Simulated scan of single mutants.
Amino acid sequence: MDFLREVLESTGLVERTRELGLALRTTRSPGGLLVVGTPDDEPWHLTAHLTDEARMSGLQQLVPTLVRWSPPPDAPAHLRVGLTRIEEARRGETLFVVAEAKAPEPLLERLDDARRTGTTILALDGGDPELTGLAHDSLVLPPDGLLSFDGAQHLVSSAAGELPGRHGLRDRLARLLDLVSGPRVAD
């Protein structure tokens, strides 16, 4: 991941992914970061990375809620969150739309309603002008761009969990070890 950042540094993409990642942290409470995709592409992978980043950084507001288009009624509770959750979104919550393809009209309508209630709308998209227009902040990745859509998701989630003064793999591993083994006690 650090190598990729170095390669992309000159393009401005690293800074934009960092800005979007930091914007995800403005959510006030765990579960208030809603992540939604399109009916054909739910952002499972990104949701898992944000969960890991929340745990490793101690930033509980990064714990995401995956919003699904057609969740099975017998799925575990965290996988049964449907589109009605977007209708319940309020000020202090963030709705992160991850859509490489054009966002469907029903999603755009819900986003517009959520924005009117004070929900912050963020987007990572493939160039959908309607979605970009509804978002408070967005990162648009053209299909023929230097960075893949999946790569951008990795950079955004990694940036969301960055703590000032603690960067890189070594620091992340140290934090993980502290979480697993507990704090070091002086002799």
Score class of each variant (00 low, 15 high):
Ser148Gly: 15
Glu93Gln: 14
Val63Ser: 12
Ala48Trp: 05
Pro72Leu: 09
Thr117His: 14
Asp128Glu: 13
Ser70Tyr: 06
Leu46Trp: 02
Met56Leu: 15
Gly92Gln: 04
Val67Met: 03
Thr84Pro: 03
Gly133Ala: 15
His78Met: 14
Ala89Gln: 02
Thr120Trp: 05
Ala103Met: 06
Gly145Trp: 03
Thr132Val: 12
Gly145Thr: 08
Gly127Glu: 10
Gly133Thr: 09
Leu66Ser: 07
Ala114Leu: 03
Val140Ala: 12
Leu131Arg: 00
Arg68Glu: 12
Asp52Gly: 14
Ser138Pro: 11
Arg115Trp: 05
His136Gln: 14
Arg110Met: 10
Arg90Tyr: 01
Leu95Ile: 10
Leu124Cys: 04
Ile86Ala: 00
Leu50Trp: 04
Arg115Glu: 03
Ala54Lys: 10
Arg55Ser: 10
Phe96Leu: 08
Asp125Arg: 11
Leu66Glu: 01
Arg55Glu: 11
Ala48Lys: 06
Pro64Glu: 06
His136Arg: 14
His45Val: 08
Leu95Val: 13
Arg80His: 09
Val98Arg: 01
Ala75Asp: 15
Gly127Ile: 09
Gly82Ser: 04
Leu107Thr: 00
Glu130Asn: 13
Gly58His: 11
Glu53Gln: 15
Gly58Gln: 12
Pro73Glu: 05
Val67Phe: 02
Glu109Gln: 11
Ser57Asn: 14
Leu111Arg: 00
Pro64Cys: 07
Leu111Lys: 02
Arg85Ser: 06
Pro64Gly: 04
Arg85Tyr: 01
Pro142Gly: 13
Thr51Gly: 15
Phe96Lys: 03
Asp137Pro: 01
Glu105Asn: 00
His45Met: 08
Glu105Pro: 00
Phe96Pro: 03
Asp125Tyr: 02
Leu46Arg: 01
Ser57Glu: 13
Glu88Tyr: 03
Gln60Asn: 07
Arg116Gln: 12
Ile121Gln: 08
Ala114Asp: 01
Glu109Cys: 04
Thr84Gln: 12
Ala75Leu: 13
Thr132Ser: 15
Ser70Leu: 10
